[in-house]
């Protein structure tokens, strides 16, 4: 066991060289790499942390937005529903009103139609009746309907009751106006004379007569003096006929409506 001093010096130098080499090729690169990686990981962790914070913030923001959106949606839905309900009610009212108007119009039109129809029926019936009457009378007595009418009218004057006669006489004498005779057809001189004679029998002689023609009277004659009226016309029969005709018609329409 002895010390070789050259070996000691050589080993000391060897060791110092090894220290320098190891420092250069081992410790420095390794420590640098470790530090770099640690820095990198620390940076990544910091990034992740900031990202988590950001994500949480965004999540909160999104949640708030969602809630606001839901609230707004609910509000808008409520508004829209109310509007729709209001519009529906409005449309319903309008439709109801239109329906009612239409119904009224239809009823009006139906009524007018019925009236027109009635009028037509009346007119045609009158015409037909007159025609038939005329024809029948002509065939039966070979006298015209007008003549027959005049005769019937004169007969009616003559057959007045005492009370009626008094009324007529009083009316005539209370006024100086002429006696008005209205007929549906133009009276001939003979016919006028016959009427004058019949009236004269009732009232006494008088020359004040007014003969007028009213085609609407339908083969009728009317005698008027100071408010008193005496008349005979087919209209009376026609009216009763009209009534008997319109009643079944009206009944038929009611049944259709129901």
């Amino acid at each position: 066991m002895e010390i070789n001093w050259f070996t000691v010096i050589a080993q000391l130098i060897n060791f110092l060289v090894l220290v320098w080499l190891m420092k250069k090729y081992l410790y420095k690169p390794i420590l640098d790499a470790v530090e770099k990686r640690e820095t990198k990981i620390a940076t990544e962790l910091e990034d992740a942390k900031s990202k988590v914070t950001e994500a949480k913030k965004e999540q909160l923001e999104f949640k708030q937005k969602n809630e606001a959106f839901d609230a707004n949606k609910k509000k808008m839905m409520g508004q829209v529903t109310a509007d729709a309900e209001s519009e529906r009610q409005k449309l319903l009212d309008k439709a109801q009103k239109d329906a009612e108007d239409l119904k009224t119009k239809i009823e009006q039109a139906s009524k007018e139609l019925q009236e027109n129809l009635n009028a037509d029926i009346v007119q045609k019936t009158q015409q037909q009746v007159l025609y038939i009457a005329k024809k029948a009378l002509a065939q039966l007595a070979s006298t015209s309907l007008e003549e027959q009418t005049v005769q019937v009218f004169i007969g009616k004057i003559k057959s007045l009751s005492a009370k009626e006669k008094t009324k007529f006489t009083d009316a005539f004498h209370s006024d100086s106006k002429p006696v008005s005779v209205k007929s549906a057809f133009a009276l001939s001189g003979k016919e006028q004379k016959s009427i004058k004679v019949a009236i004269a029998d009732l009232l006494g002689e008088t020359s004040d007569y007014e003969f007028e023609t009213h085609p609407k009277s339908i083969s009728g004659i009317e005698l008027a003096s100071n408010g008193y009226k005496l008349s005979w016309s087919f209209s009376e029969y026609i009216t009763s006929l009209e009534k008997s005709l319109t009643s079944p018609l009206a009944k038929t329409q009611e049944t259709e409506q129901n």
Partner: peptide
């Protein structure tokens, strides 16, 4: 070697 340990 004592020389090495002495050097160290």
């Amino acid at each position: 070697s004592l020389s090495t340990t002495a050097a160290l």
